[in-house]
Nucleic acid binder design. Sequence first.
RNA 1: GCCGGGAUGGCGGAAUCGGUAGACGCGAUGGUCUCAAACACCAUUGUCUGCAAGGACAUGCCGGUUCGAGUCCGGCUCCCGGUACCA
Length: 983
Amino acid sequence: MRLESDHRTGRKEYRRLLRRAKIMADYNHRETEKYWQQFWDDHDTYKPETQTDKPKYYVLDMFPYPSGAGLHVGHPLGYIASDIVARYKRLKGYNVLHPMGFDSFGLPAEQYAIQTGQHPAITTEQNRERYIEQLKNIGFSFDWTREVRTSDPNYYKWTQWIFMELFRSWYNKDTDRAEPIETLLDKFARNGTTDANAVCDEDAPTFTAAEWNAMSARESYEITLKYRLTYLADAVVNWCPALGTVLANDEVKDGVSERGGYPVEQKLMRQWMMRITAYADRLLTGLDTIDWTESLKEQQRNWIGKSVGASVKFPILEKEQEVGKGYNPSSPSSLSSPSSFIEVFTTRVDTIYGVTFMVLAPEHELVSQLTTPEQREAVEAYVSAAKMRSERDRMADTKAVSGVFTGSYCINPLNNEKVPIYLADYVLAGYGTGAVMAVPSGDQRDWNFATHFGLPIIPILDAQKDIDQQADNTKEGRYINSGIIDGMTYQQATPALIDWLEGGGLGRGKINYRMRDAVFSRQRYWGEPVPVYFKDGLPYLIDESDLPLELPAIDKYLPTETGEPPLGRAEDWKYKGQSDGSRYEYELSTMPGWAGSSWYWYRYMDPNNDAAFASKDAINYWQNVDLYIGGTEHATGHLLYSRFWNKFMKDRGYVPQEEPFKKLINQGMIQGRSNFVYRVKGTGTESIAPVLVSLNQINEREVTPLHVDVNIVENDVLDIEAFKVSRPDLTENAEFIVESDGRYVVGTEVEKMSKSKFNVVNPDMIVEKYGADVLRLYEMFLGPLEQAKPWNTNGIDGVYRFIRKFWRLFYKDNVDGTSTWIVTDDELTPAELKILHKTIQKAESDIEAYSFNTSVSSFMICVNELATLNCHKRAILQDLVLILSPYAPHITEELWAALGNEAGSISKAQFPTFNPAYLVEDAFEYPIQINGKVRTTISFAIDRAPTEIEREVLADEIVQKWLDGKSPKKVVVVPKRIVNVVI
RNA sequence: GCCGGGAUGGCGGAAUCGGUAGACGCGAUGGUCUCAAACACCAUUGUCUGCAAGGACAUGCCGGUUCGAGUCCGGCUCCCGGUACCA
């Protein structure tokens, strides 16, 4: 545009044109960013090389669930960090795999389908497209040609295939790995169960080879089901009778369904399970080999919850039996059947003489047998009340003591004492044996229970203190009241007791895990169908050639009238038997959300393979994930299941690495920052117009806070006009009481980011206004990656200014609206080199430490200092462009080309080399402390001897003043750090 | 309840090994430029006290170790994540 100050054009108009022209000449992020995004797409810039000598580097993000609300500013936080690492590693000479995809099965899509009748595949696809568009706008260096979607039949074919492999495998404790089921059958045929050291169901029978070989096909098949790594068992679910469906824990609030508010009860249902407990020990020890944060490893360790203890059998006292009258607890007859004793697991077998009662979970299988007629009514009431409480409520509630006596007794095998049997809901059926031997002197919960029910509290260690006030769980001192261990120490007592118990067949040393086998069925539609059909009541795998078993169409996404899962609605959905043409019922449950995400990092290696989940070549090249970034909320779910499947696949020879994710970083959650306007109470009714008062003008007024859209608020000041337009319901005829400067100041609160709180900030608006580079820099600048923080755009202008200041190192705006390239080839000064190399060093060490916020600030310092020095020299700026490029890929790609390099080639360049020679200092400014407080600073040469420093410091005028004639007690000189004079 | 994490100016945060608390940025205040605004630039900005030089206080709270503690130890408070069917 040509501009002339023409006499016919008024001065005002001229300036208006000038202003427009100036904006145009300034850096235009919209055009530039679009241009390079298109360029990268067109040139497959970020596809890894296939023929290369470069080392590989695999950077992975936890893939998102494509929700209807679209990508919000919290999602990109981790993606930006991983993208910076990916781009940095390319500059460092690695062949980088950096893919993205979608975890596209899940409850919200199904919930939406229930409400609208829309097939979840359709809404999921719409959401996916929106996510991709939003992700592309941010300039990530993903190789989109490798995108995976867990709900795509070409993907879930392999999820189903892995399920089948698990079904076809058992865990051999001798080799400590999973093996094909055939090796187990082989052992059975040769030696029966004697040398089959397997992880299996508790009720798996023992048999000889002859017995095995004589079994019918059905019998032996039934037995193998007890060994497979995926198997059917009863598990507790949230059953809502009114909705006729199983609910997720998320859908249950305060014991009633979130939808409708109907009562929810705990119900046992037949479910597919995963034998993850077989891997408990390897999941534990594997943690020592991977570079994850200690806190995350600790969470997994606690989740697995290995405890070393003993299991002990307490014989049940038959009604007619009397203790001491010919009763022999260790006689074989008293322990002959599983219903003749109660088995407990304890980590403190040494406290067994302190047992004064037994507590069973209300779900314990012996409850009805143990309940005496007099107690039946009370027990039944207690059991049904417990059914209404979730496991978490039961664990959390430690204040209220509740329980009920069954009327029966068992025998403490050590001292033949009669022990009353109670039920209490703090004992969980799923942990240990669902029974606890209660030692009130040593366990606080048992102590509370004993006190409440008036049961005796027996001291067992002479070191126990104040046990009439509270339990004392000490292991110190010597045992008292303790029969065979009287006088022993803890270290002596435990082995002595275990020996005694083992000798009598009454117990044994045992390792117990808190972790339970994982429930793998969901009574849902939008998940992978389980590739199983039922014949005569037994499950069989479908033929591998029939994979993928695709989701059938159904009319409604609800359970059937008879309470079967939604797949029961599918018409004519039956498995066609092999030869005889008969048809069989499919499994009607689907897989849980974590199925598809437990192996997806392998699919990215070779996403379009039809013959395998990924080719051997691809897996052998990429091995495992070098850096994985995602939220801590996955600590014990996804990250544990993924490690489990990975170990299984390694055992079966499909993958080479024991652990899938070498290094893991958790990004903190971005919370919403809600804004509020305040309506004076009593206004805004039908007859009274609303009065809306600014935060600092509320004073004595009674007000109701109302959420206001954060997108019409800037620096906590409301755009009143925009508010009126967007919310006429709240603002019709409204009176606004504003601050003295005319502004309306809103209130704020940190909450979860959600549509209903009007606090969702969408990255697209930021990208449009400030550009993707600014969004990327700003999200990193916000604070440490791993820390949770509320989203707040208050500081984004600073980053925006930084980008323009950076641009002005290259271009100067002219008065006529054009701009001039001002980069020179002048020689560099030591000061400039020092600034540059300080920044190179900082950028490199920060990126290696994943401290992205501090490197952004070092870039700001660098640009500020270069601007102050008026430095526009090519040799400095070219390196600066390179080190900034992982953070701000668009503007740097533009400037890289402007500097005369090949377009689009910055990601193939080399990261500048740091040279420490430029940073050498010859003096250090010592802070001088008097009694730990800095009073002055004095500069000394780097190599100055501490004794000389001490002498000069003491001679210093200010130090003399503080000494006030006294001589110092002590002088601490730490070279290149500090001097402290103690008076 | 249990497990894990966190708390530093008006705000986001920095201080990497126990060594100058508050880098960098936002906001605010004053100024330059402008008819005006925006942009840009300059200066000030933890609190209290003092004319000033300076001094006192200060990293959620209480106590300890140390020449020296935001950092290490003991005891609390509050907030966040997970708690087995949200992903």
